[in-house]
Design a protein around this nucleic acid. Structure first.
Lengths: 355, 355
DNA sequence: ATGAAAGCGCTAACAA
DNA sequence: TTGTTAGCGCTTTCAT
């Protein structure tokens, strides 16, 4: 892997053609005699020439680089989106810069570093609507939103999980098991997906003719500990819930632990359902019933949308929704009979998915 | 955020100077009169000019981009390293491309796309020694290894967790609790860190005058399910272990579940210790005793080493080790008395770290 | 089908 | 201190 100090002209000399012809061969231009092409390709192979991407970028005005901004890179959900996006980018001949911008200021700084310098051709933003992010977005620049639906005035492509539908399915599952007092632990209220999941929760309750009690809805922050706390409070109510819908799996885990701390069996006395199907969900105690979402696919699709937006800036900007799938494990069960069910914890043999 | 079609010459005209002077101002060259500088800066501000990074790269021969290759982006450990690296890169004025290369072929392809095209100035590789990755690495190119120590012939900077020391501490903790039959569930045997952790395990046993039984060492693949399986087998031995050291937290979780499936109380009848201290470890059942490693710091340091290697190619290439810290929670306890301890599971109130 | 010329937007060497 | 002249390595006119 020698330093590619060779230029297009070196190859041209070796092949006995002009440097322009070499350029044509590199770019697959059709107007080259097969013989010439062969000669040039032989020279390229022999000398081990590889084009300088920066020079190409400058001359062609295209960098073939995209960026993806996420609140962080460690959340499994985000990481998986990025993995999908990165794979799709490479497939389309693009490179991806993924950066974490926990707060708005960092977000604005990043945009201002990447876009005006003309380093990237397009931008993917995960969770565009937390804080005031969108106001820092460049105008007339190819952008795709992931998780968060465009407000009026934003003609950008967007792809989200079907948050509303996923929440509705989760709550519907609980209702089918006979639960009537169904609590919800939400994510931060400023996030779009939190709101959509709240909507889905209410939709499911309404469809079943159940009334939503405000006391049964508690805000968490996606962390297990926030849900642990929330669950302890919920179970202190004069009429505690018999089931909890946690808006993500980490919080579901916090709820499970709180139940254990309170000596409540799950699902005997309390059912818990999550949302994500994170890799370890089947190893929770008990294995978590949850909604599975294919974040890799979301990332991949987002990248494809973005590539399209870059190549054809005038094209329509679609708004997509990726459905979620109910994964039933052992953290949900029939509503306990009045007066409580069995308090004992059975050491049953659990089956696990192999994820 | 208008399209930066403005060039250095537009600014020069506006400020009534040569384009070169504008370049000097942009680059903080000292040889500019304060007045001229002020005029130029005023013009820049007024026009909203921002330099074209690609043109700069071509002219200066520097891209200020680095890449980090990891087996995947979703492993918490890797994601955290990348987060740290990315933060440090930005701080030093570099951008980071992080890519996942699950197998050797993808790894080689990536290297071949990034390096000869002169797009990046340096390379960070997480787990350089799984499969035959190192043979695809470019020669004479600034590189830093993360996790995996250089073999002979590789004069590259490297930073790893102190795998050996971390394993030793973990096993030592079990020994101090009185355990003598201590099993280990390893990662894939081809990985450096697996081997180092095995070494640490043996070192700790030897130091205590204990003999390592080959039957007590089982290979997993870092997944919870592999450890679940391994634990079931370990507990079938005529002389089962009283404690298990799992080489990562996910596998420790698998071991915990296997214990539950077998009706064994943890830590009453079986102690389990992990390695990682992943965010959810304190929410395992029981909360997991484990070794904490600061992967963010490792990533940050790796990036700093790389920047240094890029700036001063002739400098010495250090090999660093980041220590790990024992985090005692509730999955480890005294060796059970002969004949077994209490089989009952107490619903004690657990404290959690807030991570 | 091929080559020559001109420039992408900037930095670097030299001159003034 | 500032301006002038050349490129960086390639693509894109435009001739031929």
């Amino acid at each position: 892997m020698q330093r590619s100090r060779l230029t297009i002209r070196d190859v041209a000399r070796q092949a006995g053609v002009s440097h322009q012809t070499v350029s044509r061969v590199i770019n697959g231009d059709a107007l080259v005699t097969p013989e010439t092409r062969a000669r040039v390709e032989a020279a390229i192979a022999e000398m081990g020439y590889q084009p300088n991407a920066i020079a190409r970028s400058l001359a062609a005005g295209r960098t073939h680089m995209l960026a993806c901004l996420a609140p962080n890179l460690t959340d499994y959900t985000f990481a998986r989106i990025i993995e999908g996006a990165e794979a799709a980018c490479r497939q389309h001949g693009f490179l991806l810069i993924s950066s974490s911008a926990p707060e708005e200021a960092a977000f604005a700084a990043l945009i201002n570093e990447l876009v005006p310098s003309r380093r990237i051709e397009g931008l993917m933003v995960i969770n565009p609507y937390i804080d005031q992010r969108t106001q820092h977005l460049p105008q007339n620049f190819p952008t795709v939103f992931i998780g968060g639906h465009p407000r009026a005035g934003h003609a950008v492509a967007a792809i989200t999980l079907d948050d509303c539908g996923a929440a509705r399915s989760a709550v519907h599952h609980l209702i089918e098991l006979g639960h009537q007092r169904i609590a919800m632990i939400t994510g931060p209220l400023v996030e779009d997906c939190t709101q959509d999941r709240i909507t889905g929760y209410h939709t499911a309750l309404q469809a079943a003719g159940l009334k939503a009690s405000p006391a049964l809805s508690v805000a968490g922050d996606w962390s297990a500990s926030s849900a642990h706390q929330a669950t302890l409070e919920l179970m202190k109510l004069k009429q505690p819930p018999t089931a909890i819908f946690a808006q993500n799996d980490r919080m579901a885990l916090g709820a499970l632990r709180a139940a254990r701390d309170l000596g409540l069996s799950v699902p005997g006395q309390l059912s818990v359902i999550g949302l994500d199907d994170m890799p370890l969900a089947s190893y929770f105690d008990p294995p978590l019933t949850t909604m599975r979402q294919d974040m890799f696919a979301i990332g991949r699709t987002a990248a494809q949308l973005l590539v399209q937006a870059v190549e054809q800036p005038q094209a329509k900007q679609p708004q997509l929704r990726q459905p979620a799938e109910l994964i039933i494990r052992q953290s949900t069960g029939k509503k306990p009979a009045k007066g409580g069910g069995s308090h004992t914890r059975k050491a049953t043999r659990h089956s696990h998915s192999s994820r």
